[in-house]
Computed example of a mutant assay.
Amino acid sequence: MAIVQNWLPPSREHWETVCYIWQFFPLITAAQWVLDWYPQGKTSIDSRFNIPGKIGWATMESAGFLTLSYIMYSLPGELGIEQLPWGNWIMAGCFVVHYLYRAVLAPLYLNPSMSPIHPFVWLLAFGFQIFNATSIGGWLAGYGPTTVQDWAGRYWAMEIGLVIWAWGLMANIFHDDDLRQIRRAADRKQRAEAEKLGKSPEGVDKVYMLPKNGLFKYVLHAHYLCEWIEWAGYWMIGGWNCHPARAFLVNEITTMLPRALQGKRWYEKKFGKDKVGSRKAVIPGLV
């Protein structure tokens, strides 16, 4: 049963419309190249409209894997497809695994704290997830490969892509946890000081330090780089002609690269250029 007729799950015509619009998403993110205003994370602002960080992050990011999952289980039946090939389910599984970590496990269980998110950022991220999940989900659920033969001859590329995806995900988690350790250390310190003074411990939403482990030795946003590697592997699994996976990677880079450059300026302003040193924003030795 369709949640929104011809849109969720999408008809082929509407799916193609979504894919066409989705390729222009970098035009929306272009503003980040000239503006430092980004009210989320370390650059969040005080606003009565702010959404609590953990709730905001979980709700905007969960839209993606929930939408893709629904399309995967509803669209094939509407198209008369009895069984999707295993390659489709591998790609769907990779997508869901990533966002179960990113949208549920990380914000709700692993992160000690998260800065508030402005509704404007929440809406853009929510839209990103809906468009991306519809694009990829439609391709996987019936508008892309529909038989095992469609994957034939590409098994070696799929295996390599899956390995790249898995290493990218693990590296992303590793570097995320390095950032979490900073918050945990700050939380322990604040709690100990508060206990000595007989006061309640303050939050650690705005505690930031320069990360130093792993690829953080070379770049300030190593977790961004690892996520790009992860989704490059994902595109490799789907193949060169998997335009939804390609659009996802391009849109991630064009969204996160100016954010990383903005973040480097923030680090330099807060800690000084001497402490930041020769570290680049996101790509070692380049940017």
Score class of each variant (00 low, 15 high):
E13M: 11
T29A: 03
T29I: 01
A30Y: 09
W37E: 03
W37V: 02
G41P: 00
I45K: 08
D46N: 13
I55W: 04
A58F: 02
L68G: 02
S69Y: 00
I81H: 00
Q83A: 13
W86K: 12
A92R: 03
A92L: 04
A103N: 07
A103I: 05
A106R: 12
A106Q: 10
P107A: 03
L108T: 11
H118R: 09
L124W: 06
L124F: 13
G127N: 11
G137D: 07
L140R: 09
G144S: 08
Q149V: 12
W156R: 14
M158T: 06
A166T: 14
D177F: 10
D178M: 09
I182K: 00
K206I: 05
M209K: 15
L210D: 02
P211W: 01
F216T: 13
F216A: 12
K217R: 15
L220V: 08
H221R: 12
L225Y: 05
Y234S: 14
H243Y: 14
H243M: 15
P244A: 09
A247E: 12
V250N: 11
T254V: 11
L257H: 10
A260P: 10
Q262M: 02
Y267L: 02
G272M: 05
K273D: 07
K273T: 14
D274S: 13
K275D: 09
A281T: 02
L286Y: 06
V287N: 00
V287E: 00
